[in-house]
Simulated assay, not measured.
Amino acid sequence: MPTLPADLAQGFGPDRGERLPLPEPATWSDDQRRIAQALIDGPRGGVFGPFVPLLHAPALAEPVGALGEVLRFRGALPARVRELLICAVARHTHNQFEWQLHAPLARQAGVAPAVIDTLRTGALPDAARDGLADDESAALDLAHELLRQHGASDATHARAQAVFGDPGAVEIATLVGYFTMVCWVMNLARTPARPSNEAPLPGLPG
C-alpha cells in the first residue's frame, strides 16, 4: 500500500498506508459501475474522497452520495457558511482530505483568511480578532456545540434559528452530521488527501 507524506498523514498509528483503495475497475459489480459513472457525470466529476472507500459498499455509496449532493449543491445555506462548517468538521475529525478541499473553497466563498487560519490551529475564530461574520458565528457556535456536546443550548439554537430559520438550523445539523460521517469513513480507510498548496492540519493523532 502507498504511504502518505508525513504532513498529509491520515488516521491513527505509524502506518499511513491506504486501507481501502479504489477497487480495480475490472472487478466492479454492475452497481459499482453505475454508481461510479453517476459520480463522474454528476457535479463532483469523479470518484474520489469518501467515495473511494464507499464504493466497497455500493448500497451505502448511493444514498450517501445523494445526500451529500443535496447539501453541497442544492442546500439553502450560503456557500460561505457551508464551506466554513465543513472546515470546522474537518478540523474536529482531523480529516486532511476535506480540509485540503474545502479550506480554499471557504476563502473563495468569502470567509476571512484569518478565520480559516485560526480554525486550522484548533481554536474558535473570533469576530473582533478574525473578522468572523455574524451568520458565520451563529452557525459555527451551533456546529461546535453539536460536535463537542452532542446537542445545543437553548441560546445557541435560538440564535441559529433567528439567523437561518428552522430549515436552516436543521440543515446545519444535517451538514455537520454528514461530513462527520464521511470524515470518519476516510479516517478509517486512511483515504489520502489530494496534494495542494493548502497548509495541512497540524496535530493529527498518532
Rank of each mutant, 00 (worst) to 15 (best):
I172C: 07
R190G: 07
P43H: 08
G42W: 08
R80I: 07
P5M: 14
V170W: 08
P23A: 09
A88H: 06
R194P: 05
V163D: 09
Q161E: 14
A90R: 00
G131H: 11
A103G: 06
N187V: 00
L124W: 05
H94K: 14
L188F: 15
G49F: 13
S29G: 07
L132R: 10
H157D: 04
P63V: 08
M181S: 09
S137G: 09
Q10C: 13
R120N: 10
V64T: 15
E98R: 04
D31Q: 12
L101H: 15
L4M: 14
G110K: 05
D130L: 02
F12R: 14
I35H: 09
G65T: 03
E145M: 07
G165K: 05
R159N: 07
L147G: 09
W99P: 08
R129Y: 03
D117L: 08
Q10V: 13
A155W: 11
Q96C: 01
P14T: 12
Q10G: 04
H102Q: 08
P113A: 06
W184Y: 15
L105I: 15
L85K: 03
L142G: 03
T3Q: 15
T180A: 12
Y178G: 02
L140G: 00
T121K: 11
G42L: 02
T93F: 06
H56R: 12
L201G: 08
W99N: 08
Q10W: 01
W28I: 00
P43Q: 08
R33L: 09
S153M: 07
R19W: 09
A123R: 15
D30S: 14
P43Y: 04
A193Y: 01
D130C: 09
M181P: 02
A158M: 00
E171W: 00
G42D: 13
A103L: 02
P43I: 12
L8R: 15
P25N: 11
D141C: 11
A61V: 14
E62Y: 04
P104H: 02
I40V: 15
A158Y: 03
V47H: 02
A158P: 03
